[in-house]
Every structure is written in C-alpha cells, then in structure tokens.
Computed example of a mutant assay.
Amino acid sequence: MKTSYLACLATATAIAFAMPAFTAEKAQDFVTKAAVGGMFEVDSSKVAQDKVSAQNVKDFAQKMIDDHGAANAKLESIAGEQKLQIPAGLDAPHRTDLQKLQDGNAPLDQSYVEMQRSAHADAISLFEEYAKDGDNAPLKAFAQETLPTLKMHKEMIEKIATTIGTDPSSATSSTTPAVKTTDTPSAAAPIPGANSFTEDQAKSRIQDAGYSNVSKLTKDDHGIWRGQASKDGKNTTVALDFQGNVIAGSN
C-alpha cells in the first residue's frame, strides 16, 4: 500500500510539474501572435498615414496607432509579469506586407484597407479562441477586454471599404475591375476570366463567405484564385473567380 501511495504521489507530482509547461507554451504562442499582429497594425498605419488620400482612411490609421499602441503596451506589461517573451519584430508574412506599403506608390488606400480587413479578421479569430479557452488568467482577461475593440475596428474598416470601392462583394472601382454582377447566379464551378482581385482581396472575399484559415492562395492560368480554407470545422479547397463567386471543393 505504501509503495502504491508513493507511486501515485510521484505520478501526481510529475503531472503538476508538466502542466505549467503546457500552459506556458500556449500562453507564449498567444503572446507572440498577438504582439506581432499589434506591431503590424501600428507600423502599417504609420506608413499609411503618408500614403493614403481619403480622410476616413487617414483617421482610421491614426486610431490604429492609438488603440493598438495602447494594447501593445498592456500586452508587453502582462507578458513581462508572466515571464513570457515579446517578439523583437514582425514575422516574415507581416514584413512582406509592410514592405509592400513602404515600396508602393501613393495613394495606397485600397492596399491598406484590404490588409486591415484581413489583419482584423485574423486578430478576432485569435483573441476569440484565447478569450474562450486560454489558460493564463491575466492573458485571458486581456483577450476578453480587447476583443470588443478589435470587432469595432473590423466594423469600421468594412464600412470604409464600401466607401472607397474595395469591398469585393460590391461593384468595384476602375482600379479594381473584377466583376461581381447582380444578375449572375452563384456558379457551381469557378468561371474563368480576367481576375484583378489582389491576394488580400481574394482572402477577404473568401472570409466574407464564412471561411477561416484561408491559406496557400495562388491565381491559376484561368484567373481563378485557389487555396485552402476551413468551414464548419472541416478543411476544404476553395476557389474565387473573377465574378466574386466562392466555390468550395473545387480543384
């Protein structure tokens, strides 16, 4: 009996010591992704201020600098208290997007707005997951407190998108001539045609259709954007044609 008790005690002790490691790993992943996303919001918005023309886009960029700057500082403080690391800079995908803005010719209203739509969709997904299932109490509270602001930002940028003609669900401007006609029924298969949706626009359009985790987007020789996404807990291939039709399971 004594041997059995000691064995159980040893097992329980091992589990107790193992659990913080798993907790720390999950918390660090959230901190890393949230910090990188927050840094990108501030850095891209600083670049955009000098390269966008519409006043509502300029105002939005300033709000991102203010709101995400404050959130970034709060996250850094919590991470320090929890002995977690804040990344020193952006990851490769965000550096690439930032470089596009830095190298692009003004006005870049359309590019900036589409990046913000995509970035906020990703941020909301990240914060919703951690607000629900996070196992580090201070970080979970931070996610819960920040989430309403992120959703407000998403609503703001969606409204702005419709005012400058970058909403792929509406008729697009002359600088974005991809067509979404009101009298064309949803296609059973993607329709070939000259497609001028950018990768960011294609991703946003697919997300607007209810998909998440949109990745590996490439445009084929027929002008059709193809990639991977998930919906209702299932992974699938997905395609976006020049008319804005989103078709799942299309190869």
Rank of each mutant, 00 (worst) to 15 (best):
T3Q: 13
C8T: 13
T11S: 09
A12L: 11
T13K: 11
A16F: 10
A18W: 08
A18T: 08
A18K: 06
P20G: 02
P20T: 00
A21K: 11
F22W: 11
Q28P: 08
Q28I: 04
F30H: 02
F30P: 01
T32P: 09
K33P: 10
A35K: 00
M39D: 04
E41S: 05
E41N: 11
V42L: 06
S44K: 03
S45R: 04
Q49A: 12
Q49F: 06
D50Q: 14
V52F: 00
V52E: 01
V52C: 03
V52S: 01
S53R: 10
N56W: 08
V57Q: 01
F60S: 07
F60Y: 15
A61M: 05
D67S: 11
A73M: 08
K74Q: 14
E76H: 09
E76V: 05
S77E: 12
S77L: 08
E81A: 13
E81W: 07
E81Q: 14
E81Y: 06
Q82E: 14
K83W: 05
L84K: 05
I86H: 07
I86Y: 05
L90G: 03
D91K: 12
A92G: 10
A92E: 15
P93E: 14
R95K: 12
L98N: 03
N105H: 10
N105P: 10
A106K: 14
A106F: 11
L108Y: 01
D109N: 00
Q110P: 04
V113P: 01
E114Q: 09
M115T: 02
M115V: 00
Q116M: 08
A119Y: 05
A119K: 04
H120C: 10
I124D: 04
S125L: 10
E128M: 02
Y130Q: 03
A131M: 06
A131E: 05
K132N: 06
D133L: 07
D135I: 11
D135F: 10
L139I: 07
Q144I: 01
E145M: 13
L147G: 00
L147P: 01
L147E: 00
L147H: 03
L150Y: 01
M152D: 14
K154G: 08
M156F: 13
M156T: 15
I157V: 15
E158G: 12
K159T: 14
T163E: 06
I164Q: 00
G165I: 01
T166F: 00
T166A: 00
P168V: 02
S169F: 11
S170H: 15
A171Q: 14
A171R: 10
S174K: 12
K180Q: 13
T181V: 15
T184S: 15
P185D: 10
S186P: 15
A187T: 09
A188G: 14
A188P: 06
A189I: 13
I191C: 10
A194P: 09
A194T: 11
T198P: 01
E199Y: 02
A202D: 02
K203S: 07
S204N: 13
Q207L: 13
Q207P: 05
D208K: 11
D208F: 09
D208A: 15
Y211P: 02
V214D: 00
T218N: 13
D220W: 03
D221E: 14
H222N: 12
G223H: 08
I224R: 02
Q228V: 12
A229R: 00
S230L: 06
K231G: 04
G233S: 09
K234A: 12
N235I: 11
N235E: 15
N235H: 12
N235A: 13
T236Y: 09
Q243N: 15
G249T: 08
G249H: 08
